[in-house]
Amino acid sequence: MIHTVVMISIICIAVAILALTYRVIKGPSTPDRVIALDAIGINLVALIALISIGLDTNAFLEVILLLGILAFIGTVAFSKYLEKGVIIEHDRDR
């Protein structure tokens, strides 16, 4: 029972990722792609969680946490880049 549910969920998530991938490719603007990428990251978190349930293991919990952090950092970095043109600013005190 639980496996059927997990499978259905995985398929749903996968379809969502595919749809988001379409958005990443199509654009039309860069913020669209960044948002789509961020969403893919979050979907990946869900997907890995589901796979962990399917494989009946807790070895992938670190991956989930890491993915959450990376998706956040990546999106922030991208946003900063889109806004200011740089990600790490020069120290102005010198």
């Binding site: 990946l44 997907l47 890995i48 796979i51 494989l55 293991t57 070895a59 992938f60 670190e62 991956v63 890491l66 993915l67 990376l70």
Partner: peptide, 18 residues
């Protein structure tokens, strides 16, 4: 990285993501 998850390689998946 997802493949690594799927083929049960958590350490690889972690490194690959970063």
């Amino acid at each position: 990285a997802l493949f690594f998850v799927n083929f049960r390689a958590p350490d690889l998946a972690l490194t690959q993501l970063v």
